[in-house]
Computed example of a mutant assay.
Amino acid sequence: MQFDSLTRLIKDANALPKKGPVAVVLVEDDVEVATTLRHHMQAGFKHVIAMMPAEFELPADLHDTVIRVDYMMASDTATQDAINPLIAALPAGTWMYYCYNAEYLFHPFCETRTVGEMLAFHTEERRDAMLTYVVDLYSDDLWAHPNAVALDRAHLDRSGYYALARQDADGHAKERQLDFFGGLRWRYEEHVPTVRRKIDRIALFKTKPGLKLRADHTFSDEEYNTYACQWHHNLTAAICSFRTAKALKLNPGSTFDIETFKWHNSAPFEWHSRQLLDLGLMEPGQWF
C-alpha cells in the first residue's frame, strides 16, 4: 500500500493498523532501506510503515507487505511530526516502534523469540515503554565503503559506554532516568552537538491519548523515560545503527578528520543478540 501523505494514511480506516506491534522506519536517504524494512518484518512486527521520499524505489517484494508513506525527513522536527500523529491515530495501547534506515533492532533472544513475545512479557510487568540503546556500527574499511556502511564488515565498540544522572529543571536527579553515552558520538564528540550525544532512545512504547514524543527521543510522560520499574531490572533492547558513522563520514566538517573508525576496542559485529548481551548493551531482565 502506498500513500502520498501521512494524513491520507491516518484517514484511511482500512489501511491504518488496528493491532501492534507497529514499526515505523523513517527513511533519511537511500542507504540500506530494503534491509532495514525486511529486518523488522522478520523480527515479528505485524505492520511496518516506511516513511520515505516519493522518488525512492522499493523492491517489488515489499510493495504488498510494507505500508509506504511519502515523507521528507528534511526538517528538524520531522521525527516528531511523523510519530506524534501516529500515536494519536493508532488505537490506545498499541505497541509502537520507530527507527531510521540502516538501523536494526535486536532484543534478548531475538533469534528464537519474536518482538511480540518480548512485548507481551514486558506488558505483564506493567511496563508501557522500553529503553533501547543505539549501538553504533561502522565499516572497518572507509576506503572501500566511503559512507561507512557495510553489513558484512560491520564493527562496534566493545567498551566506552557510560551513564550520567538525568536532571530536571531544578538540577535534581530524575528517578530511574539516566543519560547514556558512548560509541562514535563519544569518541568524536567534537563533531557532534551536545544535544545529540546521548545514545538512549525510548524506541518501543505503547500509544495513549495525549502522549508526545519530544526532540530528545523522550516522551511527555516521564514514566515512559525510565529504564526500569521500581522493583527490579526490566528488559532493554539495542538498535544497531550505521546512522552516526554515515553522518560523520558524509559531513564535510568531519569526514576529512576520520580515516578509520577502528580503534583498540573495535570488534566485528556478529549480528547476534548474545554478543550484545555479553557486552552489557541490552538487559534480559526477568525474561529467560
Rank of each mutant, 00 (worst) to 15 (best):
A34H: 02
E28I: 07
F109K: 06
Q2I: 07
V195M: 13
D152R: 01
Y161M: 04
N147H: 01
Y162A: 05
G183Q: 00
F181Q: 02
D136Y: 11
D152M: 04
G116I: 14
L6F: 00
D278Y: 08
T65E: 13
T79S: 00
M52Q: 07
T123W: 11
T207C: 13
I67L: 15
K206N: 06
L62T: 06
G20L: 05
D278P: 07
M118L: 14
Q275D: 02
T65W: 04
L213K: 02
A102D: 15
G160D: 05
A43M: 13
Q2N: 10
A245M: 12
F181W: 03
M73A: 03
A82S: 08
I10P: 09
I83N: 01
R68V: 10
D168Q: 07
T132W: 07
Q230G: 13
L211I: 05
N225E: 13
F106S: 05
G44R: 05
R68S: 14
L211W: 03
V115L: 15
G44A: 10
L9E: 04
L279Q: 14
F180T: 01
N101P: 03
A228S: 12
M96H: 09
Y97V: 06
A150W: 08
L178H: 10
T244G: 11
I10H: 01
N234W: 15
A88W: 01
T207S: 12
A245W: 09
G280P: 07
D128L: 02
Y98A: 00
A247Y: 05
H145P: 11
D4F: 04
G182S: 05
A215G: 00
L279K: 06
L6R: 00
A245V: 06
I10D: 00
V115Q: 14
E125R: 15
P108N: 12
L178T: 06
V22M: 12
T226F: 13
P85R: 03
V27I: 15
E259S: 08
L105A: 08
V115C: 12
D128F: 06
G280M: 10
T207W: 07
H47P: 06
P91G: 08
D200V: 01
P21A: 10
V66L: 06
L151A: 07
Y100F: 14
Y100I: 10
R68M: 02
Y188K: 04
T218N: 03
Q2M: 00
A89Q: 07
S273V: 12
A238D: 14
